[in-house]
Simulated scan of single mutants.
Amino acid sequence: MKPIITKEKAIADKVGPIDIVRALPSDLTPRVGPIIFLDHILEKNLLPGEFSAPNGSFAHPHRGIATFTYLLKGELIHFDSNGGYGRVKAGGVQWMNAGNGVIHDEVIPEEFRVSGGAFYGFQFWVNLPAEIKEQAPDYMPVQAEELPLIQLADGQATLKVLLGEYGGKSSPIPAFTQQFIWHIKLSGKASIELKTLEGLEYGGYLPNGNALFNDIEISARELVVFDSNDTGITISNKANKELEILLFGGEPYEEKIVSHGPFVMNTVEEIGQAYEDFRSGKYGKIDYQITGEI
């Protein structure tokens, strides 16, 4: 079995009124493969009127990464300054390639703002190869039914392929290197063994509940990173209730990484250019009226 290199508790934080737990980057782990950021958006029952209509105050720029928002409960509307728009329901993904610069906003739909409801999910940042950082931005909304769902362990587990592939099943979301994000659900008292590939980096995160990863006990809201040999990962659920697991990673990112705020580039000079282009208006503006929904 793959040895565990590190395990550490994620750090609680807040983004506006939303409570989060930040698993990546951490003190011991700056990234796993091309995955450089993971926020666990804690489940929250939104109160009627808690969120106002979008006014641009949450809109912010990115460059050099792909943002990847996986929604478990609720709905989200995406707007960006490149004309990207989409509405994703629970179980779906908002994917945006920031490329050479874009401003985006993720908005709670009006009916949820009025009536309230449960909201819960995760956001990843995927670092882009240098050549992709220079390309125009792109956006893709993917609904739950478009993502492959694989039965494992004689029906005692499912693996949802959010990014990359597993067992010959691939996500429709673009992947510019070998990279993956899997959402696993494991029945109570069940175990699974997952195939791994030599040379890829593997990380895991437990949103809730405890489990054994390769016979090492992992607690809720802990990040684990595995050695890169190819001997597989075994996960055992010792509780009676269903367990959720995120596994993610990919091939090591070999290019130099320089990050500052919402920008992740390859040199200090490129970071400076990213800020200069943003401040000069080159990323454009968001049109919130393009759909008539807001």
Rank of each mutant, 00 (worst) to 15 (best):
V102N: 08
A90D: 06
T69N: 05
D105H: 08
D80P: 11
A90V: 04
R87P: 00
L76I: 15
S81N: 13
A90Q: 07
S57W: 11
V88C: 03
D105E: 13
G83T: 12
G91Q: 08
N97Q: 15
E106L: 08
K73P: 03
V93P: 03
D105R: 09
V88D: 07
W95T: 11
V88H: 01
G92Y: 02
I65G: 03
V102P: 09
H78M: 08
K89P: 00
G74F: 03
G91F: 08
G74C: 04
F58I: 14
G83S: 13
Q94V: 10
K73S: 12
G86Y: 02
G86R: 06
K73R: 11
K89H: 11
F79P: 08
A59E: 12
I103R: 13
H60Q: 11
Y85C: 01
Q94S: 07
G91M: 09
F79V: 09
Y70A: 02
D80T: 12
G56I: 12
T69Q: 00
Q94C: 07
I77Y: 05
F79I: 09
V93K: 02
G64S: 06
I65H: 05
L72K: 11
A66C: 12
L71D: 01
K89R: 08
R87W: 02
R63L: 03
G64Q: 06
P61F: 05
L76G: 10
T69V: 04
R63H: 05
K73Y: 06
L72F: 05
G101C: 13
V93C: 04
V88Y: 05
T69M: 01
M96H: 00
R87M: 10
F68N: 05
K73E: 14
G99Q: 15
T69D: 04
A98D: 11
V88R: 02
H60N: 10
W95P: 02
K73F: 06
A66D: 09
V88T: 06
T67W: 02
K89V: 00
V88K: 00
G91D: 07
I77C: 06
L76A: 14
K73G: 03
F68M: 06
N100E: 15
D105S: 14
A59I: 10
P61H: 03
G92R: 01
V102I: 15
Y85F: 14
T67H: 00
G84F: 14
V88W: 01
W95D: 04
G91T: 07
P61S: 08
K73L: 05
D80N: 15
V102W: 10
N100A: 14
G74L: 02
G56P: 13
L76N: 07
G91R: 06
N82K: 12
K89I: 00
V102R: 09
G92L: 08
G84P: 12
G86P: 03
G99N: 15
H104I: 11
H78W: 04
A59F: 10
G92K: 00
G86T: 02
Y85I: 07
H104L: 10
H62D: 08
